[in-house]
Structures are given as C-alpha cells and as structure tokens.
C-alpha cells in the first residue's frame, strides 16, 4: 500500500489567515517528513520535543512563507526550522563539537521523505486490528490515544489501576499485536514511516 506524494501548500492560504483546522490538515501530511529529517540526531536530542516545538514555530512564522515554483514551500521552511531547533538544542545541551558539526551536515543530507495522502484502506485495516486487541493492551493504547501527549504515562497508568511498567508493557504489546495483524493484511509498518 503506497500513496501518492502530495503538495501541502494547498492549505497555506488558510494557515496564513490563521485557520488552525487548515494547519491540522497540513501537520497530518508534514509530520512524517519532518520527523524523518531529525533521525540523524535521534541519539543526541529528544526529537519528539524538538518536533513539537518546530511545529509550533511553523504555525507562528507561516504568514511569512511565500509559495514558489516548487511544491511544499511551507514544508521546506519547516524542515529548516526543525533542523535549526535541533542544532540549538544540541548546542544548549553540550556545545557543538567538530563531531557534531558533521552531524549538522548529516541533518542537511537526511533522507527526504515526501508527504503522502492518507490511505483509507490502511485506516480500515488498522481499525479492524484494533478491535481484535485483548482488553488490557486495548485499554492502555486507548489511554495513550485519548491523552494525546497531554499527560504523563504515570497518570494514565494510575487511571487504569496499573503499575507504570505494566501499562508500558501493555502499550508495547498492543502495538506489536497491531503490527502483526497489519502484516496479515499485507501492511508493513516500515512502509508507513
């Protein structure tokens, strides 16, 4: 299952006008390439924190973005913002050594992942696999999804009356079961990233 590459700049006008729903649609397509661009620094900076800050910054500076003859102008701006934030974070943490300057080059050359349109067949397969999950892994995964990063896992675990490590193991198990089920549907998770 592969989807065609898309130009996310169709949302740019509405984003510039301050429409958060348009930005949400843009983020849905832009997140995978932005995340992939940070992979060379995954052992050095917390890329999840950097990515969230980069997305926020993109929303703030989007009114200054101008379309050009190439697709995905805002994404290209976003890639630069994410890379610069990651390097700032690295500098803040330990200073940028000669070795880390090589990382800066690696970041600039990180694999380019193009944004893809959502695949309705994939959505159906995942929903089917989710319904087949055992109760506790399903509950742990549901808690993660509902929280959407708003609360630490410790709090989610307490709400489910699980110890933190039990909760985490249930989340891991849920994801493994989903991956195995999707494989039966002909979907490899690596294809999605």
């Amino acid at each position: 299952m592969t989807a065609a590459a898309i130009d996310l700049d169709g949302e740019l006008g509405a984003i510039v006008a301050g429409d958060p729903d348009a930005f949400a649609r843009w983020v849905a397509g832009a997140e995978p390439p932005l995340r992939a661009s940070l992979r060379p620094l995954a052992a050095r900076v917390d890329c999840e924190a950097v990515l969230q800050e980069a997305l926020l910054r993109i929303w703030q500076v989007a009114p200054r973005c101008r379309r050009d003859e190439r697709p995905n102008a805002l994404l290209r701006l976003g890639l630069r913002i994410a890379r610069n934030l990651a390097i700032d974070e690295l500098r803040r943490a330990r200073g940028l050594s000669a070795d880390e300057e090589a990382l800066e080059v690696a970041l600039a050359r990180a694999a380019v992942v193009e944004p893809r349109a959502p695949d309705p067949l994939l959505r159906r397969a995942i929903e089917e696999c989710r319904r087949a999950l055992p109760q506790k892994p399903a509950a742990a995964l549901e808690a993660r999804l509902e929280s959407a990063g708003a609360e630490p896992d410790q709090r989610l675990a307490e709400r489910l009356r699980m110890k933190l490590n039990t909760f985490l193991q249930n989340v891991t198990r849920a994801k493994k079961l989903l991956a195995a089920c999707l494989r039966e549907h002909g979907v490899e998770l690596e294809e999605l990233t």
Partner: peptide, 24 residues
C-alpha cells in the same frame, strides 16, 4: 515513535497523530 505515529493518525478521525494533537 516513527512507527507508532502513522498508526495513531490512521486511528484518529482527523488523521492526526498524538504529536500533532499535542501541538494543536
């Protein structure tokens, strides 16, 4: 995280991962 986010997005009615929802 890179493997989980597309799954989360596919399970979300608006197609958003938990990262996207945290930012929004």
């Amino acid at each position: 995280a890179a493997r989980a986010r597309p799954l989360e997005a596919a399970l979300d009615p608006a197609g958003l991962s938990t990262t996207a929802r945290a930012v929004l």
